[in-house]
């Protein structure tokens, strides 16, 4: 029986075994632990915690939750208007976003367009994906004023980023044989797109649209916090006026709507596939 170097001392009767460490190099292993410790001290040391204010947290939490229960649905009309607007924002933004995502996805697909166009398409998608919708919303609010228009613009851009990225990846993976067949039949660029590319990505696109509608509905609840319309604004106002019972009512309805929307979106996607 040969024991290789990986097995400990071959002397009979005095063998030991330790689990081989996850990181073989001891310097790296202990260095990593040290780095984690140093990081924690550094991060916690430099972050500006306002301990005096934090200490007030418990009585404040008691007051907020005391004031929040039971949630009050007294102003149901305000609640309803807010949600109606959120839904409208989500629907219009999804429609615009999904339509606009197609040209951007084609632009961002390496196999369909020349390199400069590809770079532009990718850049648009990367930029619209990098910014959180709330940041985009605050900029649109600054540009076009408070209200649902800013919300629609925000979520349209958000949809272009998300759907465009996934769609571009889908286009890059299409069966190229169909494109060649269309070209061989003498089809032009757009005819090739319509006959050989779009049919291949359509199922995916429909599924993504449903997903995006759900996603936009969620996001529309928060862009309102910075003034871009919808239920978020109502929630923000309720919090600002210490109307915690109304705020909690809004929160409960938001959760319910999101759960329903997730269920519906999932069901529709299952039906399509």
């Amino acid at each position: 029986m040969t024991t290789r170097s990986s097995a400990p001392s071959p002397r009979q009767g005095r063998r030991t075994w330790r689990k081989p460490p996850f990181i073989a190099n001891p310097w790296l292993r202990y260095g990593l632990w040290l780095a984690v410790a140093v990081y924690l001290v550094w991060a916690l040391g430099t972050l500006p915690f306002n301990w005096a204010r934090i200490a007030e947290g418990v009585p404040r939490a008691a007051r907020i939750f005391g004031g929040g229960f039971p949630p009050s649905f007294a102003r149901a009309d305000l609640l309803f208007t807010g949600f109606k607007e959120s839904l409208q924002i989500a629907i219009l933004a999804t429609l615009l976003g999904v339509m606009l995502s197609i040209p951007f996805a084609v632009m961002a697909a390496r196999n369909l367009v020349p390199r400069p166009v590809y770079v532009v398409g990718r850049a648009v998608i990367i930029v619209s994906r990098s910014f959180h919708p709330v940041i985009v919303a605050i900029l649109f609010v600054a540009a076009v004023g408070f209200g649902p228009l800013a919300g629609i613009l925000t979520l349209t851009l958000y949809s272009i980023g998300f759907v465009g990225k996934l769609l571009a990846e889908e286009i890059e993976e299409i069966d190229w044989g169909q494109v060649e067949a269309m070209k061989a039949a003498g089809a032009g660029y757009f005819a090739t797109l319509v006959y050989a590319v779009f049919p291949q990505i359509l199922p995916r696109q429909v599924g993504l649209s449903m997903y995006q509608l759900d996603s936009n509905l969620r996001a529309s609840a928060v862009v309102g916090i910075v003034g871009a319309g919808g239920i978020g604004g109502t929630l923000m106002n309720a919090f600002g006026r210490y109307d915690y019972d109304f705020a909690f009512a809004i929160l409960l309805v938001i959760i319910a709507v999101i759960l329903v929307s997730e269920g519906v979106s999932g069901w529709v996607r299952k039906q399509i596939w």
Binding site: N50, G57, I225, M236, I255
Partner: peptide, 21 residues
């Protein structure tokens, strides 16, 4: 999962005051 980060933030700002916590 149903409550967005920024709504959670709204709640915690109301409780612990503005800041990193």
């Amino acid at each position: 999962r149903s409550v967005n980060t920024i709504i959670w933030a709204l709640l915690f700002v109301a409780i612990f005051g503005p800041g990193v916590l």
